[in-house]
Write a protein that binds this DNA or RNA. Structure first.
Length: 720
DNA sequence: GGGTTAACCTTTTTT
DNA sequence: AGGTTAACCC
């Protein structure tokens, strides 16, 4: 068979990787070096040239987006769909596995997935049950504790008995949380992985079966695997050792959620005779951008070492802009985008990147102001919205009455006269008799503990759910969702509210019906359509906004930008404390991760890269002075041009980025936003600085007399 | 029991 | 600042 089309567009190193003989294979692929290409071509090569059945291939990615893209590209290469291939995120594959083997895994058939928000709620409930104070045991920290242990493969009984009372107590919370999960048949994200691993580890026939089935395993973004995922891969790769992993230690940015870069080093030891291929030719960025990014990442110790090069021209220098504040930063960025678009370029080719999602707001405001279409990735996802989760909780309850968290969530939403007093009694009855809330409520209807009003209200709720379950038989998924929205009164509830937000909620609920209608359910996967839809909602939270084909500016966090590329990139908010983030200062390891994040951001740019920072930034409601990020200082000055306002000035010499720009422009003691005192005008805030030396003037907004321009040399301002 | 206001807490990144 | 939960009044 002619397989030349698989090799046509590859360079030598890529070709070596794609056509490597069976056995363990580690591809160290720098940013923009054709990582996904190697992976997809490898699959195509296995299937076409080696006659490997897609059924015996397992391909793992980290994000749903990457998985969809990979499938599309493989099918494009092969020219036919690869339905039988197991391909998806670690979590979705684990879920698929547990669905088939729910019995062996000790689960109920209809088990549901907890997303982080659900998990947090359940932890709160656990704390309540143990009579622990949330103030003393912050639920988020408990959540972190539990997930960290699960990601390392530790159950409560694996945790060594500690001298520390607090540690012992945390372990007890973990244990109780697990019991609740088991009782309600709920599985959190980390549990999906851990259960799968334990099942493969202890059940030898099953392990052998899957080892024989998955003759070839391919892993994308290998630097992001955590302990449990790595062990899982080792188990599956088993004796045949056909495991092909692709990764880049410089792009490891998920250490905070348990990813272990060391897995790259361990891989070579654990799989003896590993072939290592390095992909160092970058096909994405200009010479200057690449040199700048290389220079930054070079400040990290503990790298495997790799230097990207390109045949591309030097291109434009990297541009740096020092903004007065975050609004000025946004205006500058959008002004530059305006010029870019005026020059005939597409808006979709521009990305605004930031460290944390909260930073998108200012950009959104300015974009709305100038009427430029944009799209924000990340942030609140569709299936994470409160009203959607309410609706899903109804559906979960219809599908499984024993789901206590869902029961609690919607029993009184919209309000139907089932208050805390009634619920406390139900909870107590459930606890004493080891029943679910549902069964406890039903039992209490026939007792004398509840008031007649409560009994009436509860009866109506139970009948509502039972009635829905009855009526849903034979209906399509979308019809079921519609029936639920109507009967529960959720839509009516939000329609009664006023304000834009309420309207958006109603629209979202309507959108849920469309989502159900468009949901493609594979009849072979063994779940009923409703259950499949619910897992889909938990596993794939959906994009923040509906897919838009309009040509618009892309806004996203640095983390979600990984794997993407854009001709024009703005990397914003380069300030100490913001990026690198405050919480990375404590450990050097965290700081290096921030630097890798910076590297990821810079290497997204193909033709032009802007780095911006603000001298004053409003954060958490406080105005704060900032100093430029250390990462700015790590870019060699000859690659950079500093831009001010409208005109670009070439930087002369290496200015120290740690000293704010306004200081050398005017008097050393004056800075924008600084509070000052004048002998006659009183207290005020510096709005603007102009000129230098004895001609320096400042604009001050005084509390009593408003804004005035003053010549600094005569004004005798006192810094407060 | 329901609705409003006040205090409070959090606020990195994502499956 | 923003959103959420707890206290408080109707």
């Amino acid at each position: 068979m002619d397989v030349s089309h698989i090799f046509d567009q590859l360079n030598d190193a890529q070709r070596d990787a794609v056509a490597a003989p069976p056995g363990p294979m580690l591809v160290l692929a720098g940013a923009g070096s054709g990582k996904t290409r190697v992976l997809t071509h490898r699959v195509a090569w296995l299937v076409e040239a080696q006659q490997v059945s897609p059924l015996s291939i397992l391909a793992v990615t980290f994000t749903n987006k990457a998985s969809h893209e990979m499938r599309g590209r493989i099918e494009g290469l092969l020219g036919f769909p690869v339905n039988g291939m197991w391909m998806g995120t670690f979590h979705s594959i684990a879920h698929r596995f547990l669905r088939v083997h729910w019995r062996e895994a000790g689960l109920e058939q209809g088990f549901q997935i907890l997303d982080s928000d659900d998990q947090l709620r359940l932890i709160r409930r656990t704390l309540r049950q143990l009579n622990l104070d949330e103030g003393y045991w912050p639920p988020r920290q408990v959540q972190w504790y539990i997930n960290a242990h699960k990601e390392e493969g530790r159950r409560p009984h694996h945790i060594p008995e500690s001298e520390d009372r607090q540690q012992r107590e945390l372990c007890r919370i973990y244990k109780t949380y697990e019991e609740l999960c088991q009782r309600f048949s709920l599985v959190d994200f980390a549990e999906l992985l851990l259960r799968t691993h334990e099942l493969l580890d202890t059940n030898e026939p099953l392990r052998t079966r899957y080892q024989e089935r998955f003759r070839h395993i391919l892993v994308d973004e290998f630097q992001d695997t955590n302990s449990i995922q790595y062990h899982w891969l080792k188990l599956l790769a088993g004796a045949n050792r056909n495991i092909f992993v692709v990764g880049d230690d410089d792009q490891s940015i998920y250490g905070w959620r348990g990813a272990r870069v060391e897995n790259i080093l361990k891989f070579e030891k654990d799989f003896e005779g590993t072939t290592v291929v390095r992909l160092e030719q970058n096909y994405r960025s200009t010479g200057n951008i690449l040199k700048a990014a290389n220079a930054v990442i070079d400040h990290n110790r503990g790298r495997l070492g790799k230097n990207l090069w390109t045949q591309d021209d030097e291109g434009e220098p990297v541009k740096v802009y020092a903004a007065f504040n975050e609004t000025d930063e946004a205006r500058f960025v959008i002004d530059r985008i305006g010029r870019w678009v005026d020059a005939g370029n597409a808006r979709r080719d521009v990305a605004i990147l930031y460290r944390s999602n909260a930073q998108s707001r200012v950009f959104e405001e300015v974009l709305l102001d100038v009427g430029m279409p944009y799209r924000v990735y990340g942030g609140l996802r569709f299936f994470e919205r409160a009203e959607i989760k309410d609706a899903l909780a109804y559906l979960r309850l219809v599908s499984r009455r024993q789901d206590d968290p869902s029961f609690e969530r919607v029993v009184n939403v919209p309000t139907r006269g089932i208050g805390n007093k009634t619920l406390d009694q139900v909870r107590e009855y459930a606890r004493v008799n080891q029943l679910s809330m549902w069964d406890a409520a039903r039992a209490l209807l026939h007792g004398h503990e509840l008031s007649s009003r409560a009994i009436l209200a509860l009866t109506r709720f139970l009948e509502l759910i039972d009635g829905l379950a009855d009526n849903c038989r034979g209906l399509t998924l979308a019809e079921q969702v519609e029936a639920m929205l109507k009967a529960s009164g959720l839509v009516a509830h939000h329609q009664k509210e006023k304000g834009e937000k309420a309207e958006a909620r109603v629209e979202n609920l309507e959108e849920l019906v469309s989502a159900a209608r468009n949901f493609e359910h594979d009849p072979e996967d063994g779940q009923d359509p409703l259950a499949a839809f619910l897992s889909h909602a938990a596993l794939e939270a959906g994009e923040g906004q509906a897919e838009q084909w309009e040509d618009c500016i892309q806004l996203m966090s640095l983390h979600s930008a990984k794997g993407l590329e854009f001709p024009l990139v703005f990397l914003t908010g380069l300030e100490e404390g913001l990026f690198p983030h405050q919480r990375s200062f404590e450990e050097p390891g965290r700081l290096e991760e921030e630097r890798r994040l910076c590297y990821v951001g810079m290497t997204r740019a193909m033709r032009e890269l802007y780095l911006t920072y603000a001298e004053v930034r409003r954060l958490h409601g406080r105005e704060a002075y900032t100093s430029p990020s250390r990462f700015l200082g790590e870019v060699p000055t000859d690659l950079v041009t500093e831009v001010r306002g409208g005109s670009a000035l070439t930087r002369s010499g290496g200015r120290d980025f740690r000293s704010p720009a306004a200081e050398d422009a005017a008097a050393p003691s004056m800075r924008l936003g600084r509070h000052v005192k004048h002998s006659t005008f009183g207290d005020g805030v510096v709005l603007n600085i102009e000129g230098r030396g004895e001609y320096a003037r400042v604009q001050v907004n005084f509390e009593t007399v408003g804004s005035k321009w003053l010549v600094l040399a005569y004004a005798n301002l006192e810094v407060v």
